[in-house]
Design a protein around this nucleic acid. Structure first.
Length: 288
DNA sequence: CTAAGGACCTGTCGGC
DNA sequence: TGCCGACAGGTCCTTA
């Protein structure tokens, strides 16, 4: 389910229910995710208080006195707050029971997600999965961390030395974090950029507009996810996501919402891309 | 270093 | 109805 807006919505939905709570019990039904869940996780978390919940890229970081629980939702993961006695389904892999009689339940049918521990003897920024991440697309004045923030001039520098398509660059977490397939398509549409445009052909001004659209699209998606936050608890862990109206994503052969031309699709790096041939004209290099 | 493809998993859908 | 391939919101790892 998750790109950055969904992970951020999850963070916001979860936070008030879990911060300050103590972990009273850990149930692991399926330890085999992308990487195995640490076997000693129940011991590590037992009687520990959740100090805070942060997000870096699409990772959720549960802060404890002595370390960090790193969560990633993969392609199909979700986290819910439920009463402790709620029966577990087939893909409910982990429960973290809390002192308030609720629990955090992690479900992930495809098991591309991850649940890892990082000891606080090293800064969380140095975790192997986090240390090579690119800048955050959205400035966050709340965050106690000083993660790098996306900037047009730095993005321009990065793209200058890339010969791959702009869309694959947008989805590359070393260049900018948090953008997955849906929002990459949407961002390129509102930026008027063809998904196959070679990254190094973008001007500084285009990069500047791109950064603006990245922020715009992600902020708006968070806002829409946030508007359904009430459904977050007890329900289905899909806040806002499916209610969104997309410009191009999943809209092959349908008319462009801007110019009525038919939306086209193509494959890039085994992912589907969608674009309007009129609003996102192909650059000369790739025409024909 | 960059770029491209495979790998990890389960579920769903369309076609025969 | 059953089987098969294609596809699905991510990203690390290997190979060239």
């Amino acid at each position: 389910m998750p790109e950055l807006p969904e992970v951020e919505t999850t963070r916001r939905g979860l936070s008030p229910h879990i911060i300050g709570q103590k972990i009273t019990r850990v149930i692991i039904r399926q330890p085999r995710l992308r990487w195995p869940i640490p076997e000693n996780l129940p011991d590590l978390l037992q009687q520990q208080t959740i100090k805070n919940l942060h997000r870096r890229a699409k990772y959720l970081l549960l802060e404890f006195e002595h370390g960090w629980l790193i969560l990633h939702l993969g392609m199909s993961g979700n986290l819910r707050i439920l009463p402790q006695q709620t029966e577990a389904g087939k893909h409910d892999h982990i429960d973290l029971q809390l002192s308030n009689q609720q629990m955090i339940r992690f479900a992930d049918p495809r098991r591309f997600g991850a649940v890892l521990w990082h000891d606080s003897q090293h800064p969380i920024e140095q975790h192997p999965l986090l240390q090579h991440l690119g800048p955050e697309p959205l400035p966050d004045t709340q965050s106690p961390f000083s993660w790098p923030i996306l900037q047009a001039d730095e993005l321009y520098r990065q793209l200058q030395r890339r010969h791959s398509a702009i869309k694959t660059c947008l989805m590359n977490p070393a260049i900018v974090t948090g953008i997955g397939n849906i929002y990459a398509n949407e961002i390129l549409f509102t930026s008027g950029l063809h998904p196959a445009a070679p990254a190094h052909t973008l001007s500084l001004q285009q990069c500047s507009q791109l950064v603006e659209q990245i922020r715009q699209i992600l902020q708006q998606a968070i806002k829409q996810g946030g508007s359904s936050l009430r459904d977050f608890v007890h329900v289905d862990g899909k806040p806002g996501y499916f209610q969104q109206q997309y410009w191009v994503y999943g809209r092959s052969h349908q008319p462009c919402r801007n110019c009525q031309q038919n939306i086209l699709s193509l494959r890039q790096g085994q992912r589907s891309s969608f674009y309007c041939p009129q609003c996102q004209p192909a650059p000369l290099d790739i025409a024909g």
